[in-house]
Design a protein around this nucleic acid. Structure first.
Length: 409
RNA sequence: GUGGCCGUAGCUCAAUUGGUAGAGCCCCGGGUUGUGGUCCCGGUGGUUGUGGGUUCGAGUCCCAUCGGUCACCCCA
């Protein structure tokens, strides 16, 4: 039997109401905050992601779905949305429109990682980005937007981690200090940490070994090495978050997986006990647009995992109502089906949700089906007359000719 | 990519030391019942993830493979 590919999943009709609620709230919020929807291709030139994510990133090193098309071009299923949005921003001259450009997209992303609960090879994210402004109020706005989404969906069990990782002015000097420290204390590190010293020293802070972590507490932190401009920016972000009533925990070792981040980085951590607890994550990327050939342009944004959010929602016991049905038509023996179908079409034209039996069910079976579908009213049609049945009301008998008018009125 | 655990009907699960594959729910039909709910009766549905192997005989043991899950890794 052919099954969905490893790491992918179907979203069945029964799950759609909850998906619609999540996506509906997300889109409504983006609109309320002035973000406009953008849709980019599902795949891009491989070079785009290689350049922006960074050669040392896990995405580029082992997670991209890269393939050559029939003409030999190297293409990659998008593993993240920000680079694609920045590409569109440059390509279509959005930089010449009023700044900032506040954009969002809802799209499936592809990463060849080992599937696990809450971690898929194809997963959906809502990505929200503000390009063209370095205003720290935007960092705070984006963070607050997502916390508002959580609030609206009833997710309260989470934590916001916040950090600043500096910029091109102060990070290089910090990395040298860190590297020097790591060299001096190489004996304290394990193999995993040593491996990172070469590729991306910042990420040594990610190691799991508690012994190494303890040792690293004495290592220089980026927060103590920020230049004045970064320091000021970060202070403004925190100040605005305080004003917005968003609580957070400063996490000096929070480093995100993509090379393009500068200054503010953040992550929302959900309740799911396992390792896949990140609900959303983002940060500022003031060098990204320039990296792909645009003018120097600041930017900030985040990606929020839909499946992860659904997991948190399930933990919070959330549910959503299935779509409602206005009228279900039951046909008794001898009922003229064509006339009933015509009446149904007329009602649908008037905006009523109608359905009937297509499975040759018995009268009892049809009534059961009406109940299952949650029909507000049920019409039991006979040869010449019909009974309109509505919960809490006496049955109403009408002729078939009056049926559509009665139900529409 | 590495390691542990798991894989029986659409769903949740049974099946002595290897001996013909079952139940509940769901679905369909019927009976009961002043609504379609309840209760009762009956029925449909499975090459036991897949492919090999051992055996007179494999859901059960062995190998491989696919998938899930947990951990590593990493992230959403």
């Amino acid at each position: 039997m052919i099954k969905a590919p490893r790491g992918t999943h179907d979203v069945l009709p029964a799950e759609q109401p909850l998906w619609a609620r999540v996506l509906g709230e997300a889109e409504a919020l983006c609109g309320a905050y002035g973000y406009r929807r953008i849709v980019t291709p599902g795949f891009e030139e491989t070079e785009l992601f290689k350049r922006t994510s960074g050669g040392g990133s896990d995405i580029v090193q082992k997670e991209m779905y890269t393939f050559a098309d029939r003409s030999g071009r190297s293409l990659t299923l998008r593993p993240e949305a920000t680079a694609a949005i920045a590409r569109a921003y440059v390509e279509h001259g959005l930089a010449r429109e009023p700044q900032p450009q506040k954009l969002y997209t809802v799209a499936p992303l592809y990463r060849y990682a080992a599937p696990q609960r809450g971690r898929y090879r194809e997963h959906w994210q809502v990505s929200v980005e503000a390009l063209g402004s370095a205003d720290p109020a935007l960092d705070a706005e984006l963070i607050q937007l997502y916390s508002e989404l959580l609030r609206r969906l009833g997710v309260t069990d989470y934590e916001l981690l916040l950090n600043s990782i500096g910029d091109a002015a102060c990070r290089p000097a910090y990395l040298e200090r860190l590297s020097a420290w790591l060299d001096r204390h190489a004996d304290l590190l394990d193999a995993e940490a040593r491996g990172k010293v070469e590729t991306s020293p910042l990420r040594v802070f990610d190691v799991k070994s508690s012994r190494v972590r303890e040792a690293l507490e004495a290592a220089p932190k980026i927060g103590d090495s920020l230049c004045a401009a970064c320091e000021e920016h970060f202070a403004a972000v925190r100040c605005t978050l305080d004003a917005l009533g968003v609580s957070y925990r400063l996490e000096p070792t929070l480093v995100r997986g993509l090379d393009y981040y500068t200054r503010t980085t953040w992550q929302f951590e959900g309740p799911d006990g396992g390792q896949q607890s990140t609900l959303s994550g983002g940060g500022r990327y003031d060098g990204l647009v320039e990296e792909i050939g645009g003018a120097a342009t600041p930017g900030v944004g985040f990606g929020a995992g839909i499946e992860r959010l659904l997991l948190a929602l399930a933990a919070a016991g959330a549910s959503a109502d299935p779509p409602s049905l206005d009228v279900f038509f039951v046909l008794d023996d001898g009922a003229p089906r064509e006339r009933v179908l015509a009446a149904m079409a007329e009602l649908r034209r008037r905006g009523l949700a109608c359905d009937t039996d297509y499975a040759s069910r018995s009268l009892r079976g049809q009534l059961t089906q009406a109940g299952r579908l949650g029909a507000a009213r049920t019409v039991i049609a006979g040869p010449a007359r019909a009974v309109v049945r509505e919960r809490g009301r006496p049955d109403l008998e009408v002729s078939l000719a009056e049926l559509a008018a009665t139900l529409a009125g």
